[in-house]
Amino acid sequence: MDIQQLRYFVAVAEELHFGRAAERLHVTSSPLSRRIRELEKELGQELFDRRYHQIELTPFGHVFLEPARDVLARFDALAGLAAQAAPAPPARVRVGATPLAPTQVLDLVLETLEKVSPGIELPVTLEPSAGLLGLMATHKLDIAVVHLPVDDPDLGSLALAEYRFAVVMRPGDPLADREELTLGDLADRQMLLTSPKVHPLVMNRLRDHLRSGGVTRIRELPHNDVVQIAAHVAHSDALSLVASSSLAGRVLGESGLVLVRLNDPDLHFQLGVVWPASLEARGGPVVDAVKALRERRGASLTIL
C-alpha cells in the first residue's frame, strides 16, 4: 500500500466515478482502476461495488474512507513542517540617502536601525534628494536621508544636522588667502550652482538667499557632477559653494581647489530623515528608529 493508492481511492470514493476521478488526478482511467484493484487485493476486501455506469462504496469502503482521508491529510501536512520550523526572515528596511550629504548622518541612521532591530537587513539606495522623494512616493523606500525641508504632507520628517558652506575657488584667486568670506565679498563674482533638480525646494531657497545677499551672477549647471564643477572652477574665475564636510567638499578639496569658509549664519542646509507618515500607526523598526533619533537629537542639531 502506498500514498498514491490512498489518494486514488479517496478521489474515486468522493467522485463515485472513475472518469471524473481520473480527470481530478490528471491521470487516465486505466492506471487508476488498476491501482485500486491492487489496493483491494492487498486489503483482501472490495472497496467499491461496481455496476454498469455506476459505482458505490462497499460497507468496508465506507469504513476505510475516513482513515484514508486522515492519512492523506497528515501526509500533506508534512510539507508545511519545514516552513513552520524555519526561522522568520530578518526584518528589512529599505534606506535611501543622498550622496551629496555628509556620511555621518547616514551612518547614524543605520546604526540606530540596527540597535532597535538587531539583525535587520538595510539595503541602501543612493540618489539625489529629489530622486529619493520620488521613491518614497511610490513606496519603494521606508526611510531616507535627505536635505530638508520637504513639502509633502504624506511624509514625516526629522532634522538631524545642519552644515555650513565653503566657497570653492581656484588657487591664486584673490580671495583664496582669506580665512572666511561673506556674501558681500562675492557680490561681483559668478557663482556656479548645481542643478536645482537635485532638490528644487532647497536649491531654489539657496539661489534666492544668494540673490538677496547681492550675489546675482548665478549660473545653474544642468548636473550635479562634482568632477565637472571642479573643472569649471579650475579653468575660470567662477566660484561655487559646497558643504565642506560632504563627500563633494572632500573631492573638490583633494582636486587642488581652495575652500574658504563662508560666514553667513542664515545660510545653512539641514539634513534629516523622512518616512511615510502612515508607518507611525503601524509601528515597526522605522518608527522605533525615529523615536530613538528624536530622543538622541534633543534640543540641538549636529553641526557638520
Rank of each mutant, 00 (worst) to 15 (best):
H139D: 14
H139I: 01
H139N: 12
K140E: 13
L141P: 05
L141G: 05
I143Y: 05
A144R: 13
A144D: 10
V145H: 15
V145E: 14
H147D: 15
V150D: 13
V150T: 15
D151C: 04
D151S: 13
D152Q: 13
D152C: 08
P153V: 10
D154W: 05
D154Y: 07
L155K: 00
G156E: 07
L158K: 09
L160F: 13
L160H: 08
A161E: 06
Y163N: 10
R164A: 05
F165W: 13
F165K: 01
F165N: 10
A166M: 02
A166T: 09
M169A: 04
R170H: 12
P171V: 01
G172H: 12
G172M: 07
D173M: 06
R178M: 12
E179L: 12
E179N: 12
E180P: 00
L181V: 12
T182D: 00
L183A: 13
G184W: 12
L186A: 13
A187P: 01
D188G: 14
Q190L: 05
Q190S: 11
L192G: 01
T194F: 08
V198I: 14
V198D: 01
P200F: 01
V202S: 07
M203F: 07
M203K: 11
N204A: 04
N204G: 05
D208F: 08
D208S: 13
D208K: 12
L210S: 07
R211I: 10
S212E: 15
S212L: 11
S212M: 06
G213V: 04
G214T: 08
G214M: 07
G214E: 07
V215R: 08
V215E: 08
V215Q: 09
V215M: 07
T216P: 02
I218A: 02
R219P: 00
R219W: 02
L221R: 15
P222K: 01
H223W: 05
H223G: 06
N224G: 04
N224D: 08
N224M: 00
N224F: 10
Q228H: 05
I229S: 03
H232W: 11
H232D: 12
V233L: 08
A234H: 05
A234N: 01
S236T: 15
S236N: 10
D237E: 15
A238S: 14
L239W: 03
L241N: 06
A243P: 03
S244V: 13
S244C: 00
S245R: 11
S246M: 13
G249E: 05
G249L: 04
G249V: 03
